[in-house]
Design a protein around this nucleic acid. Structure first.
Lengths: 220, 220
DNA sequence: TATTATTTTTAGACAAGTCTAAAAATATAT
DNA sequence: ATATATTTTTAGACTTGTCTAAAAATAATA
């Protein structure tokens, strides 16, 4: 069995891995986990002994197949519990992260799969992030943000790229939740801010900072 | 905040406390937690520093008001999650304990109360144990067991006094789950075993060991 | 009551995960 | 290419919770 701490390292490494980077750096992990680089080195050695990561001194780390499986299963758990908390317990999307952070570590295929079924196999969590299926496949939706839309174009909100409480809170205050319909009225050249209409009713002025973190599916 | 370990000690002390005993003994806690007496002494000191227990060397421990509150909230959590697992995720009553043991430590009044509401304020967990309400009140049902019934008397199953997997498994195999109707056909003087009819259909022979651990509500 | 048995506590050690401070390796800049 | 800056690792220490072995206190028994 692996400790919560080990699992959080695996999750962090998974998050920081991408085709672009060859080996996740010690400092990046330290930043992500909010700890010191020396602690990361210690833990990396432990994970390496357990064959969960591949590691050469000073060269950064890669997850092994086994390490990646664990990371993905934790992410699956996390996102399913978030759906549960929002759909069934009526929490708001900015309130669920910390609970899910604890629930995700109860790692049982049986429990996860039953929760999945109970929730009717959701494809995305309340922030629009894709939920890995029970074989660990993740289907990412293409990365169009509100800031990519031009005047008169329309779309619906499918997710967020930024998960801070203050951002989610703000979005909710202007009705920009999952599924909201957006029409772009006007884009200001100077600062890329835009005027939009939400659900054919409310009009709002949106900064570039906000629009570039809002994932959108273009409609017609 | 308190660690899982601290919380498990509080739970154990609560479980072992009763009007009968004045101070829970170190050995009893060690037995309950499955650890060594010396470890218990160490932890008791820590809990005492935190004002969660009252402790005098060699005299056993008592929970303080604050310690008892925490213990009860954990038990509330545990039992609510058990209801969730059985009612919503269709687990059987012998499968849920270990999961609940982990879920119980996510201690948030908000989360617990919403879960309670979602489950429609259940009074008992799947084993018939009472669920403390949100103010910490526990309403115990009176302690009549199947072994208290005489020939021709009837009752319905309201709980179990023994929680082992093998016992719960056995009960399920003879349909003795929560709510099952029992009629006593015959009691053997020699070993106190009895012949019963379950739900007016199945007849079973039940040992004293089994009948004395099955909580019953008498029905005329 | 004196002696033995049991329970509880102490003392010292260990593993996990963390930290600081310093050393080693790598990357950057002159 | 050499000096400087940054990143990473090591060494040693600290905390939490555990353990064993021995000492101290309490309980049981003759």
């Amino acid at each position: 069995m692996n400790s919560f701490t080990e699992e959080n390292y695996l999750k962090a490494i998974f998050k920081l891995s991408s085709p672009k980077v060859d080996g996740v750096s010690t400092n990046a992990i330290a930043e992500e986990i909010q700890t010191k680089a020396s602690s990361v080195t210690d833990m990396i050695k432990k994970l390496s002994d357990k064959k969960l990561v591949k590691y050469k001194k000073y060269q950064g780390v890669h997850l092994t197949k086994k390490g990646k499986e664990i990371a993905v299963s934790i992410i699956r758990n996390h996102r399913l519990w978030e759906v549960f908390l929002v759909e069934k317990l009526a929490f708001k999307w900015d309130e669920v992260h910390d609970f899910a952070e604890e629930l995700e570590h109860i790692r049982s295929k049986e429990l996860t799969n039953r929760l999945d079924a109970f929730l009717e196999f959701p494809k995305h969590d309340p922030h629009g992030d894709p939920i890995p299926d029970k074989d660990g496949n993740i289907y990412n939706h293409k990365d169009i943000t509100l800031s990519d839309l031009k005047s008169a174009e329309k779309g619906i909100v499918v997710g967020v790229k930024e998960h801070s409480k203050s951002y989610l809170n703000y979005l909710e205050s202007v009705n920009l939740v999952l599924g909201a319909e957006i029409k772009v009225n006007d884009v200001i050249d100077f600062d890329h801010s835009m005027s939009i209409t939400v659900n054919k009713k409310k009009t709002a002025n949106i900064s570039h900072q906000v629009s570039k973190n809002l994932l959108i599916k273009k409609t017609d």
